[in-house]
Design a protein around this nucleic acid. Structure first.
Lengths: 113, 113
DNA sequence: TCCAATACATAAGAATCTGATGTATATTTG
DNA sequence: CAAATATACATCAGATTCTTATGTATTGGA
């Protein structure tokens, strides 16, 4: 099952911030691949959504960047700024709270405790 | 805590379909109030989002309507069509699956099994 | 009597995503 | 070794969806 795109709306920044919280630094393409792996191909981040979102987070001072060359190919690494570390925690716990609310609202049983 | 609006994006139709699955028929304003109650004021559906969404679901043949007068005030009840009953089940189970994926992705512990 | 609540609806603008297009290098495979 | 695929960035037109007002009108309570 690949989720309908409307479902994923609004979760993109939370996903980015969680991955960067766990991984110190990652580049855009790597994020798309990691999410595919971790979700068994259920969530595919499109580049047209990802890159503008990364740029916005950087503009907000939540992410910092370092550019490196791998051979002749450029690679742009993103990391959480100090501010970003706080925002990351907040977003993840807000989402956790939201999921509990939605679980109650939709009477959903989850697999694992 | 009132959730940031981006978090709720994409969940509106699922919420509507769940409430109508449980309640046979409801009118717009009633849906906004019920959601507030059920979520302890954490989710506020705005009318500007709700009514267009109801109209779209009706146009798609997912909901049917009956208009009634309560005194002189009009009230428009929405119900699931036969097609809507299937769509409702699908949307809810898709969302449940999505939440499990997100829970794994974000390493979130939920309160209750 | 006036304010809040009930009840519908629409609409401009904002935000965000899709899907395409563009550019370029690196690697794999037949 | 040529061609296809994967890696890696970026932007943009158009679509979708939501926010925030605005509008209209009835009803109930203080």
């Amino acid at each position: 099952m690949i989720y309908s795109s409307e479902l994923i709306k609004g979760t993109l920044k939370t996903i980015i911030l969680k991955l960067l919280k766990d991984n110190k630094r990652m580049y855009g393409y790597e994020i798309t691949q990691r999410v595919k792996e971790l979700t068994n191909d259920r969530i595919h981040l499109t580049e047209g959504a990802l890159y503008p979102s990364l740029h916005a987070l950087e503009a907000d001072g939540i992410l910092t960047t370092e550019t490196e060359y791998i051979g002749k190919r450029v690679r742009k690494y993103y990391s959480l700024s100090p501010k970003g570390k706080n925002v990351s925690k907040e977003k993840i716990s807000e989402f956790a709270d939201f999921m509990n609310t939605m679980k109650f609202l939709l009477d959903i049983k989850t697999d694992i405790a």
